[in-house]
Amino acid sequence: MEFGSDFWGQVFLFFFEYGNSGLFLLALAIGLIVGSWIERRHYRSIIQREQAGVGLPVVSIGKKGETRKAVQEVRLVVGMASISTDFFKRLMGSIISIFGGEIRAYESLVDRARREALLRMREQAKGADLLVNVRVENSNLFISAGQRYAIGSVEVMAYGTAITYEK
């Protein structure tokens, strides 16, 4: 069980040894209540912004340079997001990983991070007519690299080329 390897796991195992399980339960409650509230709020904002930005076509295929219209501007747009999970879900995840199977809590975490990064990329491309050659990458730049305690979070980087046609 990898539970002991994360920061809060270490902290609460330390308190557990001294017979203070109240703090542990408090952390679980904070994770469950505040964590799921934050997630719901985040999903609401993601869905709202996704619906607001439907006008801009975003494709993951490249464009070979031939366009029917004259091109005014071409630029690289990048969107990034780093999202952390909460204590309750991390505990659930480590319990499920004993028996194996699907960890729903982590699926929603990566889903949120990807959609957020894609949305930010799209916001940067505001005013463009087409967004092509979109790539999504897990960057792991500041979170996993050489971290002593895993904090259960993901970094996602989405980039593509925004094309604006001449009006």
Binding site: V34, I38, A81, S82, I83, S84, D86, R90, F142, S153
Partner: peptide, 15 residues
């Protein structure tokens, strides 16, 4: 990471 959410500091560093 106790209650989750966006790690704004890391996002800023990434940018």
């Amino acid at each position: 990471s106790l209650w989750g959410g966006e790690l704004k500091g890391y996002t800023k560093l990434l940018y």
